[in-house]
């Protein structure tokens, strides 16, 4: 639905985003991940036409992105802001009207969302009198009130308590189910892992990882395995010899077993290692170690310090 190709943006000669490409598909949640200063917000601003890229192009539904198409987007920036003196209901209706809704639709949609997020009693309350959590909810409503095709959310869960995180998560899943394209920028890896169908990872302005979560886990496989055995640790170590490296081990006193994480050395296979282990100790449990998103993220940050172009 939304496709950006080779986006670049510099500020005062410093490159903030360098040749970044990404795609957001209908009915999918794409996670844009990266540490602070990775260039995520700049990419999101370019997708919203708040910033014009120095180079590259963005297409929405196979057509160049226009101001008109951005009206079909809902944008929740990282640093939230509402008119403090304005009443909650008026505020939501104002933003809905700016997105092109008729006066009647503005009211209907605003009422629908206030009801849905249990905010109806706060319709006539000034923003400055609301709790932070409720202000965040109002901000979320202003993003979705016009029924956008694309949702661009920068840290949507920040400032929410676990109950509200759960509620917003449910809403996002529902949006996804109704065919909306969602792009989600977050530092919360657990959320991203649960919600996102695709991951786009950025570091220092560069695009470092891209793809579906399982695809990435496969690509980023570390050839590590979790093994639980009963027997002598010395016998286990001898069985491995030079075919694998022990990364971590701990005894399971209750079960009288040992838990070990091993990484298979180059030129060896897990099949032969298992055979060797079976001859020396009793194999109780075996599992392939899949890298988590957090591990992939940390791995990228620590190993791929790409200098600014």
């Amino acid at each position: 639905m939304l496709h950006a190709e080779n986006l670049s943006k510099s500020y005062h000669g410093k490159c903030a985003v360098n040749q970044v490409s990404l795609s957001v598909h209908s009915g999918q949640i794409t996670g844009l991940l990266g540490p602070n200063g990775a260039g995520k917000s700049t990419v999101l601003r370019m997708l919203n036409r708040i910033l014009i890229p120095d180079s590259g192009n963005i297409q929405f539904k196979q057509k160049p992105l226009t101001a008109q198409s951005v009206q079909r987007f809902g944008y929740l920036p990282e640093e939230r802001g509402l008119y403090r003196k304005m009443k909650a209901g008026e505020q939501v209706m104002f933003f809905a009207a700016l997105k092109g809704l008729s006066r009647k639709s503005c009211r209907e949609q605003a009422l629908y969302w206030f009801d849905r997020l249990h905010l109806m009693p706060l319709w006539n309350t000034r923003i400055e009198q609301l709790s932070k959590g409720n202000q965040q909810k109002i901000q979320f409503i202003t993003t979705v009130v016009h029924g956008p095709d694309v949702l661009i959310l920068d840290e949507p869960f920040s400032g929410f308590d676990p109950v509200n995180v759960e509620q917003i998560t449910r809403e996002l899943i529902q949006f996804k189910g109704s065919g909306k394209a969602i792009i989600l920028s977050t530092h919360n890896m657990e959320n991203a892992e649960t919600l996102c169908d695709r991951i786009e990872m950025m570091h220092l302005g560069n695009h470092v990882i891209s793809g579906g979560l399982s695809e990435l886990q496969k690509n980023q496989a570390t050839h590590s395995y979790l093994i639980e055995y009963r027997g002598l640790p010395m016998a286990f170590a001898n069985a491995l010899w030079a075919s694998a490296e022990i990364l971590h081990q701990e005894p399971n006193v209750q079960a009288e077993t040992h838990r070990v994480i091993i990484r298979v050395s180059e030129g060896h296979t897990i099949r032969t290692i298992i055979q060797q282990i079976n001859q020396s100790v009793e194999l109780v449990f075996f599992k392939v170690q899949v890298p988590t998103l957090r591990e992939m993220f940390m791995n990228q940050i620590q190993n791929k310090a790409v200098p600014y172009a």
């Binding site: 708040i50 951005v70 944008y75 640093e79 802001g81 008119y83 700016l98 202003t142």
Partner: peptide, 16 residues
């Protein structure tokens, strides 16, 4: 006020 509250970022997605 709009700059400090960052509300302008949302408005600029709808208005030039």
């Amino acid at each position: 006020e709009e700059k400090q509250s960052r509300i302008v970022e949302v408005i600029l997605t709808s208005v030039r």
